[in-house]
């Protein structure tokens, strides 16, 4: 599903190139649950953003479903977002000005889903995540765990093939964290590909492969099965 070949990323100002990622080769198959680990500044989030097409690469090749992402234009990439990719962030990143219902609706609007279908999808999702009662509240009226729940719900509503999760439980207490992880695991079991970034060994254990990053290089890969 995903193939990276010699991907690199650097920031340059006039005199210095600052390397963030170098020589990244990796492959992710459909249905994988991959964890990216590493110390601060190792390039974990940058890699995730490149995978999610939120950030440009400085060099290398990236194939998503055999399409060369490094050659695609903005429109095509947005198309991939709309169809295949859901994001979950540590800081939830819900739109503060929108209610829970409207936050869930946003990706569907951008995907141009018809009104009736949209309504039923949202209703279904609210039900599934047990947040029907919260649908008219704004994010700042919810607890952190509830906000992350909504964020996950929003990532899932388009039924993505790939979920990118950047420390999804980082801001949550352990009980809430476990709930979210269980949910991701359940999704993975249903066939959704998941790539997560985490510091936490316990959370990392949910994946079937762990990629360790160090100073921008892939240090080692742990296969768990």
């Amino acid at each position: 599903m995903i193939r990276l070949k010699d991907v690199e990323k650097y920031y340059s100002n006039k005199f210095v190139k600052t390397w963030v990622l170098r020589n990244i080769d990796m492959e992710v198959k459909e249905g994988d649950f991959v964890t990216i680990m590493g110390p601060s500044g190792a390039g974990k989030s940058t890699l995730l953003h490149i995978l999610g097409m939120l950030d440009d690469m400085s060099g290398g090749e990236y194939y998503f479903l055999d399409e060369p992402v490094h050659q695609l234009n903005e429109r095509k990439r947005t198309g991939f977002h709309q169809q295949y990719i859901g994001f979950v962030f540590q800081a939830y990143h819900l739109i503060d000005e929108l209610t829970v219902y409207e936050n869930l609706e946003t990706p569907l609007l951008y995907k141009k889903v018809k009104t009736s279908e949209r309504k039923s999808l949202i209703a279904e999702t609210l039900d599934r995540f047990n947040i029907v009662a919260k649908k008219d509240l704004f994010p700042n009226q919810l607890s952190g765990g509830q906000q992350q729940l909504v964020a996950v719900a929003r990532a899932l509503i388009i039924n993505p093939k790939l979920i990118l999760a950047d420390e999804p439980t980082g801001n949550l207490n352990s009980k809430q964290g476990l709930e979210i992880m269980d949910m991701l695991k359940a999704l993975n079991d249903e066939g959704t590909t998941i790539i997560q970034v985490t510091h936490d060994e316990k959370k990392a254990a949910y994946g079937d492969r762990i990629i360790h990053l160090l100073d921008g290089y892939i240090d080692k890969i742990d296969e768990r099965n």
């Binding site: 999610g52 939120l54 903005e74 429109r75 947005t78 198309g79 977002h81 709309q82 994001f87 990143h93 819900l94 739109i95 503060d96 000005e97 946003t106 990706p107 951008y110 995907k111 929003r154 388009i158």
Partner: peptide
């Protein structure tokens, strides 16, 4: 910028 970023990660394209 944050709001717009989230919208982008949720699949908003330029026209939208």
């Amino acid at each position: 910028i944050k709001e717009i970023s989230i919208r982008k990660t949720n699949g908003a394209n330029r026209t939208q």
